[in-house]
Design a protein around this nucleic acid. Structure first.
Length: 151
RNA sequence: GUAGUCGAACAGGUGAUCGUCGGCGACGGGGUCUCGAUCUCGUCGCGGGAGGAACGUCCGAGCUCCAUAGGGCAGGGUGCCAGGUAACGCCUGGUGCGGGUGACCGCGAGGACAGUGCCACAGAGAACAGUCCGCCGCUCCGCGCGCCCUCUCGAGAGGGAGGGCACGCCGAUCGGUGAGGGUGAAACGGCGGGGUAAGAGCCCACCGCGUCGACGGUAACGCCGACGGCACGGCAAACCCCACCCGGAGCAAGGCCAUGUAAGAAGGCGACGGCGCGCAUGCUCGCUGCGUGCGCGCCGGAAGGGUGAGCCCGCCCGGUGCCUUCGGGUAGGCCGCUAGAGGCGCGCGGUGACGCGCGCCGUAGAGGAAUGAUCGCCACCGCGCAGCAGGGCGACCGAGGCGCGGGACAGAACUCGGCGUACGGACGACUGCGACC
RNA sequence: GGGCGUUUAACUCAGCGGUAGAGUGCGACCUUCACACGGUUGAAGUCACAGGUUCAAAUCCUGUAACGCCCA
């Protein structure tokens, strides 16, 4: 796929996100409750520097929403801010990464501050198929968060 | 050239594309609603968007609530002097002490005759001290040598015994001594001379210390003179004393909207009293007066509660309620939220910190949390290349060109003033050393 | 953002001016046929770091670092 950043994915298969590359508030998780809701999710994808949690969104029609978690273990305030910006940028420039109707929380692991934008995009591109499969499983009701198992 | 000291400033620039936060204007969807607003989501346009340390949270303030922040105790802080400041533990200028050849730098730097305490080990002795080795003196015992006297043996030379005097040595008792040795971080002034039995501020000069006085300085203190004759060890970043300062918590403060410290249940505690006004009513012919009931206001006050680190005084709430237990919910929105003891420039006053006056500027306000991403160009630094133009007798130096690499520490969370810590490369002034003119 | 606390042996902790200690663990020896238990003995520490006060600092003061806790 396209890793070279600026250009949008050529296979923009009728992406319903009307805003193009915009990143409005509707595409972001803005409440602590949203994050807590995704934490017990069993739909998880690991990459060398990130952990992605996928869960059901508020509506099947709505575009996928992103939340970023970078704890103090990852680095200083400057490094944490940079990681969050890169994650948001990679999500913004790739609207087809996830289907509509899902939420995703990206948790940074140690070492993430050393990455550039192209590194993040390449890392995610490797797991693209797995991400979409997990997302569709969530939308079908499989791999729902087991609230009993995780109080 | 090299090693260093101090000061002030900066924190690469610019363009394109895609984004983001809040402000203003226009438009649209939704919520609330007193129907005019307000909040929220989005589109378009205009202009704005991290730092010198935004950091650590070590001090000081503004602001908010607790009582307008009150009194006492306890507790905490500061600590040479003078000034600056809203304030400070900060800054400036001085003083003293210490470090450096120097430019310059560092210092919690009040009080140890108000009291209490500590000074390990070593050492004789560690605080109004002490005699271990020594030194000195008197006396006594013993020994040695010399001289004198008496007695005695001997023919004599000379020998023996006793006594006396002087000297020396060994030992003992008593006394003097704090000079020397030794211990220690520290041994009750230092050094030199006189003096003495040996010594000692015992005496003297200089130094130190203390007291008094004169002079200079606002002061800390400096300097000069006289006197005293050592009387005054160190530790207060030991308790403490003295002087001055400090109420507590912190924007997750606090306020508004929504709302459940609710409704309800069980147990326990309790207290209502006085005055005034109005209304109704009874006694009274009526006014006045008296009694009863209801309502309102004021005063005192119980049970009980609050007083935001502790205790007391006090203060406040409470007044048909209060306390305990059970019961049961929300996890939202808005304000506070940025004009600030604000910055820059000039002038005046001041050694300076700083103050005063005038002019100009408009400068982030988020809330899972914006200020970014990518690609160019220019400037800067380092390395490499052709060793090119050019310079030099030469080794070599090389403007410019091409390529590669690099640019630190670090991200606002109510706001300021400081301190401390992290960190990049340039600049200016000054100092030491070396070489040359 | 704000308010606090702790750093001492490999681990858990005492010590709070005068040569750094305990328990567990570790090594060696004894005991046992062998192991465990038990006994004897030994090693192991820049007292987080850097300055300062003091004759003397793990201890007192100042600064720094790391780790941890609390808030509606």
């Amino acid at each position: 796929m396209i890793v070279g950043a600026v250009m949008p994915p050529a296979t923009d298969h009728a992406s319903p996100s009307p805003a193009g590359f915009a990143f409005p508030k509707a595409r972001r998780l803005r409440r602590r409750g949203d994050f807590v809701r995704l934490h017990p999710s069993r739909a998880r994808v690991h990459t060398p520097h990130f952990l992605l949690l996928i869960g059901e969104g508020p509506s099947v029609e709505a575009a996928a929403r992103l939340g970023v978690t970078v704890t103090r273990k990852v680095g200083s305030a400057v490094e944490r801010n940079r990681v969050k910006r890169l994650v948001r940028e990679a999500f913004r420039l790739d609207p087809a990464l996830l289907p509509n109707g899902v939420d995703v929380v990206v948790i940074a692991k140690a070492g993430a501050p050393t990455l550039a934008l192209a590194d993040v995009q390449a890392e995610w591109d490797v797991v693209r198929g797995l991400l979409r499969r997990r997302a569709h499983e969530v939308l079908r009701g499989e791999r729902a968060p087991s609230r009993k198992g995780r109080p």
